[in-house]
């Protein structure tokens, strides 16, 4: 069995005075793909942000171990340099910073060495072609004026260019048309199968999973993981929804996705 890459033990987090995650346990091994599903407001994105080290959330308990190292209190950039990565559901717009120069800058910051420019351009061109992004996007300001689909493709482009060891994908498929989902899925598949990258895919639909091999599935409801299972759990949710896990007592409290 592969080594444990990410280990989350008893993680609890809050924002303002509202507790959003309760005692979450999670274990992802190298190269595994996990799916995190759950109804709106369950805390899925909160878990992603917390794993990545967002300062907007306050940890109230638990720890996060990545590749044997306790990253619970590390800043996001340090986690990223250890090999963690997250695509954003709503990627931010950075005027004046081109997509290409940002990726180049990020590689430089991660490696601490100048980027080999010819190789970089070959890789970038190939990845953009795979994602069916027009080459002009390389020169455009990061996410500025990008459509929803283009933003998601730009996120997957960064995934492919930065080649992390674990990628958290936060609702990468939301707002995409069928063709774009297929393109984005192909990018993720290459990351998963050709590079052996591990994934935590946060989603509440299943379209994006069709071409991916799934190892484990977790159902998050009201900040708690209420069910773990294998890939078949995805089909079960697909057929029956979340009702079996939320029960009649469900009261939607907060909307954080």
């Amino acid at each position: 069995m592969a080594n444990i890459l990410l280990q989350v033990k008893g993680l609890s987090a809050k924002i303002d005075e509202k507790e959003l995650l309760h005692n979450v346990d999670l274990e992802i091994r190298e190269g595994e793909t996990h799916v995190l599903m759950g109804p709106n407001g369950a805390g899925k994105s909160t878990l992603g942000f917390t794993l990545m080290g967002s300062p907007s959330y306050e940890l109230t308990g638990g720890e996060i171990i990545f590749d044997g190292e306790d990253v619970t209190h590390l800043s996001a950039d340090k986690r990223a340099r250890l090999g963690m990565f997250m695509t954003f559901q709503n990627p931010l717009e950075i005027p004046g910073l081109s997509l290409e120069s940002f990726i180049r800058g990020a590689i430089r910051e991660r490696t601490g060495a100048p980027v080999k420019i010819m190789q970089f351009h070959r890789d970038l061109d190939a990845a953009m072609e795979l994602l069916q992004m027009h080459p002009s996007y390389a020169e455009r300001d990061l996410n500025v004026g990008f459509s929803g689909g283009e933003k998601k493709k730009a996120e997957i482009l960064q995934l492919l260019m930065l080649s992390p060891r674990l990628a958290i994908l936060d609702e990468t498929d939301s707002g995409l048309d069928v063709d774009a989902v297929r393109t984005v899925s192909e990018g993720i598949r290459i990351y998963q199968q050709e590079r052996g990258g591990a994934l935590l895919i946060i989603t509440h639909s299943t379209r994006i999973l069709e071409s991916l091999k799934v190892d484990r599935t977790h159902i998050l409801v009201d900040g708690r993981i209420v069910k773990d299972g294998d890939a078949s759990l995805v089909d079960e949710i697909n057929a029956n929804g979340f009702e079996a896990f939320t029960g009649p007592q469900e009261i939607p409290m907060v909307q954080f996705d």
């Binding site: 967002s54 990223a80 931010l92 950075i94 910073l97 800058g105 300001d141």
Partner: peptide, 26 residues
């Protein structure tokens, strides 16, 4: 949020701020 976004790609906080300011000045 923008600073966190850039940091999540492995860019230090200082560099993230500097990238945003240079972008502003571009």
């Amino acid at each position: 949020d923008a600073v966190f976004y850039l940091m999540s790609r492995g860019v230090s906080e200082a560099e993230a701020r500097s990238m945003i300011v240079s972008g502003f000045a571009s």
